[in-house]
Amino acid sequence: MSAPFVLAVAGPPGSGKSTLSYALSETFGGAPVLAYDAYEAVTTWPPEQVAAWLARGAPFDALPVPGLAEDLARLRRGEPVPDRERGGTLRPARRGAGRPVIILDTLLGRAHPGTGRQIDHLVWLDLPLDIALARKLRSFAEGARREPSAASRLLGALDAYLGRYDRLLHPTYALQRDRIRPAADQILGAGTPAEHVAAIRSAIQPILMAAPTPTAYGGAEP
């Protein structure tokens, strides 16, 4: 059996990583999606801890994502893992020809030691931070429309998000772009999810169909 191909999608919050990741999942026969947001613990940090992390040079290996690298490695070996985002179980999808695909929806790209070394193809969604912020704000509004009873809670969350944005979040997102974008295999700007899917598929399809070579995971090396 060919080892699964790890296709990672990175970009700033609001860039459309999750939307694109699930569109890619459909394109590649129900490929499992591992979502960074289902593992990360940094959003539990108080603002002063985030500020101290920035002051230390913002080491990405200090960001806690317990279990993510381990679950990705297990999927690469063909083992099932819990779906921590949507519930149920994730398994590498079988494909008629070529290697199965695993989608990694991540903020850290190859800058995270545990998962970065397992990525075969990294896509960076190159969205300007002001547009990403506008999309993030719209997500709060959409949440309030879908669940009017939660509007007060969402307004509080929005206020907290904007209160941290200029001092903590914007500098973090700028660092993310500076460190992760250069290591991307493919950079995509403006476009619809369908256009992005087509561009990614065109880029990796020859690799997926190529003859694999054995690896320590018992499958193939890209």
Rank of each mutant, 00 (worst) to 15 (best):
Leu54Met: 11
Leu54Asp: 04
Ala55Gly: 02
Arg56His: 04
Arg56Thr: 03
Arg56Gln: 12
Ala58Thr: 11
Ala58Val: 02
Pro59His: 11
Pro59Arg: 06
Phe60Thr: 13
Asp61Trp: 09
Asp61Gly: 02
Asp61Ile: 07
Ala62Val: 08
Leu63Ser: 03
Pro64Trp: 06
Val65Ser: 12
Pro66Gln: 07
Ala69Gln: 02
Ala69His: 02
Ala69Val: 00
Glu70Arg: 12
Glu70Asn: 01
Glu70Pro: 01
Glu70Val: 05
Asp71Thr: 01
Asp71Gly: 01
Asp71Val: 01
Asp71Met: 00
Asp71Cys: 00
Leu72Met: 11
Arg76Gln: 15
Arg76Met: 14
Arg76Val: 00
Arg77Trp: 00
Arg77His: 07
Arg77Met: 08
Gly78Leu: 04
Gly78Trp: 01
Glu79Met: 10
Glu79Val: 06
Glu79Thr: 03
Glu79Pro: 05
Pro80Phe: 03
Pro80Trp: 03
Val81Trp: 04
Pro82Gly: 11
Asp83Lys: 10
Arg84Gly: 15
Arg84Cys: 14
Glu85Val: 05
Gly87His: 15
Gly88Asn: 14
Gly88Asp: 04
Thr89Leu: 09
Thr89Lys: 05
Thr89Phe: 02
Thr89Trp: 15
Leu90Met: 11
Arg91Ile: 06
Pro92Phe: 01
Pro92Ser: 02
Ala93Ser: 14
Arg94Leu: 12
Arg94Ala: 12
Arg95Asp: 02
Arg95Val: 15
Arg95Gly: 04
Ala97Thr: 14
Ala97Pro: 06
Gly98Lys: 11
Gly98Val: 11
Arg99Ile: 04
Pro100Trp: 07
Val101Ala: 06
Ile102Arg: 09
Ile102His: 08
Ile103Asp: 05
Ile103Arg: 06
Ile103His: 06
Ile103Asn: 05
Leu104Thr: 15
Leu104Val: 14
Asp105Ser: 01
Asp105Gln: 01
Thr106Asn: 03
Leu107Ser: 13
Gly109Tyr: 08
His112Leu: 07
Pro113His: 15
Pro113Gln: 10
Gly114Glu: 02
Thr115Gly: 03
Thr115Asn: 06
Gly116Asp: 08
Gly116Val: 09
Arg117Val: 13
Gln118Arg: 15
Gln118Lys: 10
Ile119Asn: 08
